[in-house]
Design a protein around this nucleic acid. Structure first.
Length: 423
RNA sequence: GGAGAGUUGGCAGAGUGGUCGAAUGCGGCGGUCUUGAAAACCGUUGUCUGUCACAGGACCGGGGGUUCGAAUCCCUCACUCUCCGCCA
């Protein structure tokens, strides 16, 4: 959520920046400014009334103590009307605040200066490409056929037990999953992240905190009986660990990593491009999250990007890095890099990671602050990245490393899997 | 699931209707003393809103009510703890 004060003081800049997203903000921004003006006006009037009522109440107390009953009763008689007036102010104020909030949450984050303008995926900027695309024989198979051939992932079985998009990993497939999780966590630890195991069901307040609610409600599984949501990403519980807190500046940066299953309803997505592991309702992911001083957040973003790339390099996967354009970037992000891995058998790029700097957009709603040198609490910057999401990594490992006699496991993973080939 | 007790500032913990944004202790910060440190002593120490700056306003788990006035009384919800039950 953008800060109202910032919008008020930088109206033109906000409109101009949001245009990069093709977001026509002018009208909305003006409404926000007007509502904020109204809010402050009502607040001032309400405060003045409260001050008057407080004074009267204090006088009554003082007079009673002095035994001047009659004078006290006289003031009391005049004070009866305050309550009703205050109630009305409170109602007006609540209404204006709600309207303001409702408008405010419609405004996406301001794109960083470096974000290219654009409408969609085709306008993203390729920052770099790394590694050789493997040349596969004509007999090469897409991963959904490889998984069947070697009996390592069973999609039909998952459909029986739960439904489409809930695969069953078996044998070496299951062990490869576990190996990847441990590999990613170990690397994150080496990079300075602290591991946490958060809950994978969260309450409504947490969903609001990171922005999944209210707009993306339909994308999360909801456990109605207890009113809890299954997390779509570890970002939700991990970032919310710090909701409503003020941390010491000396404790920054806060670097966290977590492995969790992730659940996404992704209603309405069907077709060849979502076959196999490409899009699932349940998948595993290791996430990295940082809470940092505002001055450092863009350096941290670059380091996060470099870190994620180091994982892809270790796994010997050809990849490219995209700087997302305004039209393709997430609602809450100021700058996002996507990492895409080349899937040799599908002959297309698969998104495996997304690292973003949210600046104060999340921290403003979450009320995560740090106490700076002047002693005043200040919003910090939040960032996160997938490091990494498993299914598409698994898919590209299977596809890119297929040989006539089985699938070769990348060397760094062998200590984790305990086997060198799937055959 | 049943019964009871609780929820106050970074922490501990007083406060049962007005002088309470809140005693006291610990912790933090600043200072005196000291070669330095510790101890001791003195001072200071919440958040939000609002203003050019003052002033003012709000916050004692959330919401609602009683009252001229609520941390304090009432209702309600959430959570925590203890005991019982169930259970990995």
């Amino acid at each position: 959520m953008l800060q109202v004060n910032y919008i008020r003081e930088n109206r033109d800049r906000v409109v101009e920046r949001l245009a990069v997203r093709n977001f026509k903000a002018l009208e909305l921004v003006d409404e926000v400014v007007a509502l904020d003006e109204r809010r402050r006006q009502v607040q001032t009037e309400a405060d003045a009334l409260a001050a008057e009522a407080n004074t009267a109440a204090r006088q009554i107390g003082e007079l009673m103590r002095q035994g001047k009953r009659e004078e006290a009763e006289a003031i009391k008689a005049r004070s009866g009307g305050y309550k009703e007036q205050q109630k009305q102010f409170a109602e007006t104020l609540a209404e204006v605040e709600r309207e303001l909030y409702d408008k405010l949450v419609l405004l996406p984050n301001l794109p960083n200066e470096s974000v290219p303008a654009g409408l969609g995926a085709e306008d993203n900027e390729v920052v770099l490409e790394h590694g050789q695309r493997p040349l596969l024989p004509d007999t090469a198979l897409p991963h959904w056929e490889l998984t069947a051939k070697y009996d390592i992932i069973d999609f039909e079985l998952g459909t029986k037990v739960t439904g489409a998009g809930f695969p069953v990993y078996k044998g070496k497939g299951a062990r490869l999953q576990r190996a990847l999780i441990n590999f990613f966590l170990d690397r994150a630890l080496q990079a300075g992240y602290n591991e946490v195991q958060p809950p994978i069901l969260v309450n409504e307040a947490s969903g609001f905190g990171t922005g999944q609610l209210p707009d993306k409600e339909g994308q999360m599984y909801h456990v109605g009986i207890d009113d809890l949501y299954l997390i779509p990403t570890a970002e939700v519980p991990v970032t919310n660990l710090y909701r409503d807190t003020i941390v010491k500046e000396a404790d920054l940066p806060i670097q966290l990593t977590a492995y969790t299953p992730c659940f996404r309803r992704e209603a309405g997505s069907y077709g060849a491009h979502v076959r196999g592991l490409n899009r699932l309702h349940q998948f595993d992911k290791v996430e990295v999250v940082q809470l940092v001083h505002p001055d450092t957040s863009y350096d941290v973003l670059e380091r996060m990007s470099t870190y994620v790339q180091s994982l892809l390099q270790a796994l010997e996967l050809p990849y490219r890095v995209l700087r997302l354009c305004g039209g393709d970037m997430g609602f809450t992000s100021a700058l996002t890099y996507d990492m895409e891995v080349w899937s040799a058998a599908q002959e297309r790029w698969l998104e495996v990671s997304s690292v973003s700097n949210f600046e104060t957009y999340q921290s403003n709603r979450l009320k995560v602050r740090f106490k700076g040198e002047n002693g005043k609490p200040q919003l910090l910057h939040t960032l996160n990245g997938s490091a990494l999401a498993l299914p598409r990594i698994l898919a590209s490992i299977l596809e890119n490393n297929q040989t006539d006699n089985g699938i070769r496991i990348p060397a760094v993973l062998v200590p984790y899997t305990g086997f060198e080939r799937i055959d």
